[in-house]
Simulated scan of single mutants.
Amino acid sequence: MAITPSLALDDAELSFTYILASGPGGQNVNKVATAAQLRFDAANSPSLPERVRTRLLTLAGSRATRDGVIVITARNYRTQQQNREDATQRLAELIRQAAHKQAYRVPTRPSKGARQRRLDGKSRRSSIKQGRSKKFDD
């Protein structure tokens, strides 16, 4: 399963179990296990770089177990196949977020002209406000 151009997961790393689901399906929902539960062992996955692995487990939050296994339960659809695809798409999106490298801000300073323009604006505003005050002539 391709996640990004440089990152892919082997389908053998994903394990699915099917459980009874609430929600749409009528009486069928009580008889057929349509909800898909995806388990992915992120802590021991050879496909993930260390940087992505640590960020993925952080982003997963309560979906990750103490052992580093990510559990995603999909129960939005009426069929096992659709729920299975939904769970894999959600995992792929989570890994994409973890693989995204954040751009670091390069600290800059305002130029001399920008500082001067800011101070000029402040003094202009100050003179406008001073002009509004009442002047008493004795």
Rank of each mutant, 00 (worst) to 15 (best):
D138M: 04
T58K: 15
F16T: 02
R84Y: 05
R53G: 13
D10S: 14
G25L: 01
K101Q: 12
R96K: 13
K112P: 02
S47L: 03
E50C: 05
N30L: 06
V106L: 13
A99G: 14
Q80I: 06
P110D: 09
G25V: 04
E93W: 08
S45E: 03
F40T: 07
G23Y: 00
V32I: 12
G131I: 01
T79P: 10
D137C: 01
S133V: 10
R125C: 03
Q80Y: 10
E50F: 04
K134R: 14
Q82R: 15
A92H: 13
P110V: 14
R78S: 11
A103N: 09
F136D: 13
G61T: 02
R63N: 15
L91P: 05
P107D: 04
E13W: 04
R55I: 03
V71W: 00
L94A: 09
T4H: 06
A98G: 15
L57I: 06
D41E: 05
L9C: 15
S111F: 05
L91K: 01
L57K: 09
S111P: 05
I3Y: 12
R105S: 12
R90P: 00
T58R: 09
T108S: 14
I95S: 15
S45G: 11
Y18M: 07
R96I: 02
K31I: 01
P49W: 04
L9E: 12
Y18P: 09
T88A: 06
K135W: 09
A2G: 03
S22Y: 00
N44V: 02
A114V: 10
H100D: 15
D86V: 06
D10R: 10
V32C: 04
L48T: 13
T58F: 00
R117K: 13
L7C: 07
R55W: 04
P5Y: 01
A60S: 12
R78C: 11
T65N: 11
V71R: 11
Q80V: 02
G68Y: 00
V32H: 04
F136Y: 15
N76P: 01
R66M: 01
Q80E: 14
R84G: 00
S47D: 12
